[in-house]
């Protein structure tokens, strides 16, 4: 199992959100929009620039754009292309 942040995570792979290392306001915002620890997400972006595109697959919600600085605060885990 690999523990890395969302920026480093591979695209088009199902990932599990483990933890958000941000202040309370940002944590609340991300969680309420569907970036919830324990849920699975898919990252769509492959380009090394611009914000990341993430979709919560557990909730089948719409896509969320997150800038790289905030995305690097989101810890995720995955295992051989499968979420932990």
């Amino acid at each position: 199992m690999v523990h890395i942040n969302l920026v480093e995570a591979p695209a088009d792979t199902e990932l599990e959100v483990l933890e958000i290392n941000a202040n309370e306001a940002i944590k609340k915002r991300l969680i309420s929009m569907g970036i919830h620890p324990g849920d699975n997400v898919i990252k769509y972006t492959t380009a090394p620039w611009g914000p990341l595109l993430v979709k919560n697959t557990t909730l089948n919600s719409s896509k969320i754009a997150i800038c790289r600085a905030l995305a690097s605060a989101i810890q995720i885990g995955y295992n051989n292309g499968k979420p932990v």
């Binding site: 940002i26 595109l53 754009a65 905030l70």
Partner: peptide
């Protein structure tokens, strides 16, 4: 500060 934005369907 950074961007968090929903992209509606």
């Amino acid at each position: 500060t950074g961007l968090i934005m929903e992209i509606p369907d």
